[in-house]
Amino acid sequence: MEINEIYNKLKSVFGEGIGELKTDLPVRPFFFADASKIDAVALFLRDEESMQFDNLSCLSGVDYDKDNLAVVYHLCSYALGHQLVVKCLVPKSDPKIKSVSDVWAAAEWHEREAFDLVGMIFEGNPDLRRILLPEDWEGHPLRKDYKVPEFYNGMKIPY
């Protein structure tokens, strides 16, 4: 299916929950979805007969701009062979977003990683703990304003 068809179908089902389709930036068109509805959108994308996005290829947390974080979903369909990019904006003041780990099992660890490094809270993730950094680590390193601490457990960090 072409991106326009997918977009129009989603727009007709979810209305306001789906933002405008952006095609002006390289390389692939994408659209924003509402962070509080992303689980329903994901389920629809997976189960709808004409889409069948059975695989979450990649989920990335991004420090998007001054006020927002973003979660980017790269989906692909093994059955039909098409791909899709969906983004969700999450305000830094209240970084909550619905988890899609029920829809794609792959999302569970990816969400934990995004939580660990960028710091958004995925509501509904069964095991939202730090995955890469130690559990007593402070802060989220991939935020642009992150300051590396002087010491961790008595070990000096800077060179």
Partner: peptide, 14 residues
Amino acid sequence: WEHGYHVLKGIDRI
């Protein structure tokens, strides 16, 4: 050495 926030800069530190 420069941006490794999670890397120990030399094993001789421990």
